[in-house]
Design a protein around this nucleic acid. Structure first.
Lengths: 228, 228, 228, 228
DNA sequence: TATGAATGAGAGTTCATTCAT
DNA sequence: TATGAATGAACTCTCATTCAT
């Protein structure tokens, strides 16, 4: 029984009138979410400098003005995008429950997760690059960002400690370096895949190539951790 | 071993032509070199989208018009910068004479060289990032770029082969993956050092930190290559 | 003598409704008064062109929308502000009861009143300037404004006439010109005091300077009126 | 007596290229002069806040971009307009050669000059008003402005001194106050003439009205200076 | 009555590029 | 070869105003 004869604004986010997209949303939360999603995509695609507010607004299906209503301006929007993005990856990481896995499995899971996360969220790498081009000036201003990483190294540290205790891993491996190395192995391959493909002459993202790289990375990490 | 054939960015502000710097150069080669150096620095600093032709001209101490005289426009200038840059690193690599070193020494030298090159030429990483943001569309158009990498993998392949033959390295390591891994270890650490410092809470480029990272990377690579 | 019947700008920030200031006023008269006070201050501060509806709404502590509810728009709001303002000064003038004073005292009182009014209500001058910049197009549309000035010249005329009759003033002084002159002497000094201070190099609004100017103006007017 | 040495705005409408008005001037001095003239007119008409860069560019017949080439922006353009304007009036004043006239004639000439200058250059008053609305923040930054007024008061001082010596003027009249009064009498009448016409009900700028006001002002000043 | 979301037009300013000398 | 003037198209951001509740 149809009780909603009237066209509801905001309704368009569901099924039905997807193509009709009502002109006025009147749903500030949705509007902000749309802006953030569009901004993330655009910043990732062309960088902070290359991104156009107008394009973001169009992609988000909102009026340009709204961006200034909800976010102060381009820079603040960028900062918010970064905060959301890093919150996401850290949240997913925690959801892995690595502390309940045996050390070898935990490492394998973490390396694999990192790889898959980059693969499924290529904007992540692009935005990290952008932020580093700007010398991290946005995250440095962000309280939320700092808090997010409280205890970040500990997670891996505990796994390594357990592995050392069990005899699976050698002692004395610096956890921060290990962290950086796990990230590096996947990140570099994927973010630089375009020039890489020209230089090395093969498709970096074919199913086989991806599997090969993940295996190689696991091998690299386990070689490093293996006791002599 | 000469590692500094290359024109260094910022070079123009030093020594050399300081007094001679006549207002009208009338020296097309110098002019082009100045433009390229300035462009490299600027593109590295703020990306392709963020770079301003006017700023480049000012930094180069030449008239804006000259950029259009010698290079067709911004995009072409960027492409040329990339070509020069990659030519430089490949040239220096070849100058290392790795094929005359014993395999273990050769690997050590290559890992160390790569690390040091990134360290001394941070624009390199920044520009590679930029080019990948643009999906390698400039180098794809460049014949010079392709030619530059003919036989690039072979160099490392031969070292590995020699190492396998001598029993220093295990067999079956994919050279392209090894290449990518060597690059990744240094690159990621250095290019993402700004966000990294916020996340990990230490100075990434202190003398000690740098030495520690290089040692860690060498350890990682040798662990990987070590026969079981 | 009550000179403060008028609602003072900035009044709303004081006393009165401080505690009562519920978030939702539901008091249309208060709301309108607040808007007018805020608008007056803002128009005076930055002119008609420079004033922002949003700023006025914020200062008034009301929703932007209300301005359009009670006044048609920015221009109409400005017109209303002008009407209120001129009503105020004319009301205060009448309250002086000049017709009950001896001519010399009446003139002294009027010159002094005018001077003090400008001094205490600097927005008055600023708004008059604004309206003249716009060639009086708002007050020309205002019936209320015209009615306000019916018999305005007469007041002074009667004083002058009495003074001529008593032998205190010379005959033949044009009352409109006198009016304009009395206004001019105070107005110019105060409205242009900022550039004046730079040009003449002294503080125009120190206690001494103000007294000096008032004395000078009284001297000027009485010299003019004095019979030869 | 040449009062029109100054370059008049609209001057460029002379000679040659009247109809042809070349699309590209390639005459930076002309271009700057055109911009300044247009800016002066526009700022005078609608104030600093109300003036539009685009409108100024159109009036000047130049590309909008040029305004940013020659002047840094709107505020700087406004400042330059003010500097030019005040330079003009001070230059013309000096050209009067008041120090060669007998004191009474000198005062008459100065009052008359001031009146006529305002009459012929109504933008002057409008711009002074604007600058005072902005609390003189532009001229305060201008070195040129301060220098312009070095010795400004002296000119009148010497005349008054000579008049006192000759017995034409009474002693003890403050020159700064006199200066301000002479300016005030003309300025107020002319700048507020639009509201004035509504209030007083006569045409302020008819030939007769203007003559009447000038005579009244001369009378006011001479009454003030006349020895008892 | 009151509110906050939404809008389109246009503001100042900057950019890559071309013209004239 | 070299220069500086000139341009038109954007770009970020702001404004007065209206819509929906």
């Amino acid at each position: 029984m149809n009780m909603q004869t009237t066209v509801e604004p905001g309704e368009e986010s569901r099924a039905a009138d997807k193509p009709a997209r009502a002109k006025r949303l009147r749903d500030p939360i949705q509007t902000q979410a749309r802006i953030l999603a569009a901004a993330k995509a655009e910043f990732a695609k062309v960088g902070l400098g290359g991104a156009r507010i107008e394009t973001i607004a169009e992609k988000a299906g909102v009026n340009k003005r709204m961006i200034y209503e909800y976010f102060k301006g381009k820079e603040e929007l960028f900062q918010t995008v970064l905060e959301e993005m890093w919150t996401d990856i850290r949240t997913e990481e925690r959801a892995l429950g690595l502390d309940h896995l045996p050390p070898v499995e935990a490492i394998r899971a973490y390396v694999t997760f990192t790889w898959n996360y980059y693969l499924k969220n290529p904007e992540f790498m692009s935005l990290v690059n952008s932020e580093n081009l700007h010398r991290a000036r946005h995250v440095k201003k962000s309280r939320r960002f700092s808090e997010l990483h409280r205890g970040f190294v500990d997670m891996l540290q505990q796994i390594v400690d357990r592995g050392v205790a069990s005899g699976d891993f050698k002692a004395g491996v610096d956890t921060s370096q290990l962290h950086l190395t796990i990230a590096a192995l996947g990140y570099y391959y994927l973010t630089n895949r375009f020039t890489g493909e020209v230089i090395f002459g093969f498709d970096f993202v074919s199913k086989e190539a991806l599997q090969k790289r993940l295996d190689f990375n696991l091998d690299t990490i386990f070689s490093l951790l293996r006791p002599r």
